[in-house]
């Protein structure tokens, strides 16, 4: 099915460059990657075509692979006889000022989902009608789900992770228990070898 969709996209949207990523493991899901700049025409084509339409967008999920970031659009077709779904992906390589076209005009579901991706990964969606953070506070610094995220030290005059409220005793206890276990294991292995 994915090959057919990729073919359709390539035929109808010029420069979309749709490629099927076949999963290396049979138990995992395959997906389709398209050019980041062409996401809006690709999505509107997928919704509007008659051959293989997708009438709903389930969710937009971002993944940070350090070298680049990926935005996954879970496309679904609610149909009683022929339900289908697939993962549509775009790669965003710019980490400093990442930008994508908003697809709110095609799927209204994208409104909150794009705001969440912006909140967590800092990807700006151009032409979004209400572009601001959704889960974190408006004045939060940094984008939490990026792999290089560092928690801010102070927030509105309050200390984040204050020492007085951290449970260091429990942590030490766990570390000590692990050390004891490792020591036991090491001694057991030397005994068996001896």
């Amino acid at each position: 099915m994915l090959n057919k969709i990729a073919e359709l996209i390539n035929k109808n949207v010029s420069g979309a460059n749709a490629v099927v990523n076949v999963a290396t493991d049979a138990k995992c899901d395959s997906s389709i990657t398209v050019e980041a700049s062409k996401i809006l025409p690709v999505v509107s084509f997928l919704r509007g075509n008659t051959e293989m339409p997708f009438n709903s967008l389930h969710v937009i999920s971002g993944v940070d692979y350090v070298d680049y970031m990926e935005v996954c659009y879970m496309m679904t077709h609610y149909d009683l006889t022929d339900p289908r779904e697939f993962i549509l992906k775009v790669k965003v390589t710019d980490r400093v000022n990442p930008k994508l076209d908003s697809i709110v005009q095609v799927y209204a579901a994208a409104n909150f989902q794009e705001r969440e991706v912006y909140d967590m990964f800092g990807i700006t969606f151009t032409n979004h009608p209400d572009h601001r953070r959704i889960l974190c506070p408006d004045d939060w610094e940094g984008f939490p789900l990026r792999k290089d995220y560092v928690t801010q030290k102070m927030y509105n005059g309050m200390e984040v992770y204050p020492d007085s409220k951290m449970n260091f005793e429990d942590r030490e206890y766990i570390v000590r228990q692990n050390m004891i276990k490792q020591a036991q294991k090491a001694s057991a292995s030397t005994e068996s070898e001896g």
């Binding site: 999963a23 290396t24 493991d25 138990k27 995992c28 997906s31 389930h58 779904e85």
Partner: peptide, 9 residues
Amino acid sequence: LPKGEVYVR
């Protein structure tokens, strides 16, 4: 788990 991704509903 192996390298890859799944989407389960």
